[in-house]
């Protein structure tokens, strides 16, 4: 979202030179290139800290809902394609490696290698987005989307059974129930809600336009029926029926991977910019700060994914 700002060190500004410094990239208010480099690096680390905190908000959301709706996560994660997710993890790690190598090449002044490594990094990033697109497209077609758009198709349910995860025969039917409960694109008063406030006003949503008074009903008091299923010596919390609020998982999935994908896109922009500058031969042992800082950013993007992958795909 802010790749331009992710590059704190200042390239030269013509009017600021009083003394002819050796390094053409030394800004007027720094005394030495070393001071400038260290400042840039410290600034970048602070920026990365803010990025981590941005994601940590979503990790908190994840933790809160995983704790309050464990059965939803247990049930829903198997709709994700572990193979594609795994490939994407490898792709991203490889591109991170290429990025690290690029920094090394810049430090050693190996211009050709630098350009190749940066190109490989870019390729990795685009591949990641391509695979992510395929995953999103599948989810879109299956109707397994965030709460407001959650409406699984019959094929999606069949697909689940075909993957061999369907422990209970009635799962598919149950999911249809859950989807129809949320499928109207608006709030639907649940049965417990009606019992609490028999005189609640009519819920009103007209094509997403909220009408003056509320349509919100209290949620059910707790997770629905659960039983312990023993499998392979491990105790698994396995709900008997599909949890009603399955969409919570997909909301969190799309929020987390979506925000991450935005960061990948920003990173690709930054890497393209560094690549363009490297083709002009602007980096070398004396000045490679942008390559270094963009590299740090790219590693952060990678690390976030390394946390996302097991949390979303590999729940057991």
């Amino acid at each position: 979202m802010s790749d331009a700002e992710a590059q704190p060190p200042q390239p030269p500004t013509p009017h600021m030179h009083e003394d002819p410094h050796e390094n053409a990239y030394l800004a007027h208010h720094f005394d030495t290139p070393q001071q400038q480099f260290e400042s840039g690096k410290l600034g970048m680390w602070m920026f990365l800290a803010t990025e981590v905190l941005l994601f940590s908000g979503l990790f908190c959301v994840y933790a809160v809902y995983r704790a309050s709706h464990p059965e939803v996560f247990e049930w829903a994660h198997r709709f994700l394609n572990v193979t594609l997710g795994g490939i994407n993890t490898m792709v991203l790690i490889t591109s991170s490696l290429a990025m690290a190598w690029a920094v090394r090449a810049a430090q050693l002044g190996q211009q050709r290698l630098l350009a190749i490594c940066l190109s490989l990094t870019l390729l990795g990033g685009f591949s990641f987005l391509g695979i992510k697109y395929i995953e999103y497209k599948n989810k879109w077609e299956e109707g397994l989307l965030w709460a407001g758009k959650y409406k699984p198709t019959a094929e999606a349910l069949e697909h689940l059974n075909a993957t061999g995860h369907g422990e209970a025969a009635e799962l598919g039917v149950a999911t249809t129930d859950a989807s129809s409960a949320a499928g109207h694109g608006g709030a639907v008063a649940s049965a417990p809600a009606a019992a609490v406030t028999a005189s609640a006003p009519a819920p009103v949503v007209i094509d997403g336009v909220k009408v003056e008074h509320s349509q919100i009903a209290p949620a059910p008091p707790g997770p629905q029926g659960m039983r312990l299923v023993e499998r392979a010596g491990l105790l698994h919390l396995m709900p008997e029926r599909a949890p009603r609020e399955l969409w919570i998982f997909f909301s969190i999935y799309f929020l987390m991977t979506g925000l991450h994908a935005l960061h990948v896109i920003a990173g690709l922009g930054a890497i393209s910019w560094v690549l363009a500058r490297s083709l002009k031969g602007q980096f070398g042992p004396a000045y490679y700060t942008p390559v270094d800082l963009v590299g740090l950013y790219w590693h952060l993007v990678d690390v976030v994914w390394i946390f996302l992958f097991p949390l979303l795909y590999l729940i057991h």
Binding site: T197, A200, Q215, A217
Partner: peptide, 14 residues
């Protein structure tokens, strides 16, 4: 008066 009263609150909208 002089008797404990428990209120159980919820809301239907905000």
């Amino acid at each position: 008066m002089d008797r404990p009263v428990q209120l159980t609150l919820t809301s239907t909208d905000v």
